[in-house]
């Protein structure tokens, strides 16, 4: 008899519970991540296209600031989500890397082809985990 009562207690408990370990998937955020990652990649593609004399920081300042503002907005959004520990590490690393790349360009006035190619590859490396993580959250959004 006590066994049945304990079982009934756990069953009743389970009735009102749903497991939540990750934030809800957000389609708009996935779109913003894709859009900003693309803008970041485009920044370096444009720089490679321009000759070394045109690659001054001032020439790209506006683009840098637009991308940084978008990254900050993604970070802010993730800060407001529940169960956000993993996402905050990923977004924080991305934010730090972008700020470092921007500062380097600003301090050195221009970038060489090699530096641009290296930054382009590294920044893509920082974006990918964020994009794949957001897409991974879709698992819980789908019915099957």
């Amino acid at each position: 008899m006590p066994k049945k009562i304990i079982l009934l207690f756990f069953i009743t408990l389970c009735f009102s519970c749903k497991v939540i370990w990750v934030p809800d998937y957000n389609a708009k955020l996935e779109e913003q991540i894709t859009k900003t990652a693309r803008a970041n990649d485009r920044l370096y593609i444009d720089m490679l296209d321009d000759g070394p004399d045109k690659r001054t920081y001032d020439h790209y300042k506006e683009k840098y600031n637009d991308i940084e503002a978008d990254i900050n907005s993604i970070y802010l959004f993730n800060e407001a989500r529940n169960n956000n520990n993993d996402l905050l590490v990923i977004t924080g690393n991305l934010k730090g890397a972008f700020q470092e790349a921007k500062k380097y360009h600003k301090e050195n006035k221009t970038l060489s082809d090699g530096e641009i190619k290296a930054y382009q590859a590294s920044m893509a490396g920082f974006w990918k985990p964020l994009y794949l993580a957001e897409r991974g959250l879709k698992i819980n959004a789908s019915k099957n």
Partner: peptide, 13 residues
């Protein structure tokens, strides 16, 4: 740092 992000990404999935 990229590796750290990747591991957190895998953890989320």
């Amino acid at each position: 740092k990229i590796l750290e992000s990747e591991l957190h990404s895998i953890a989320i999935v």
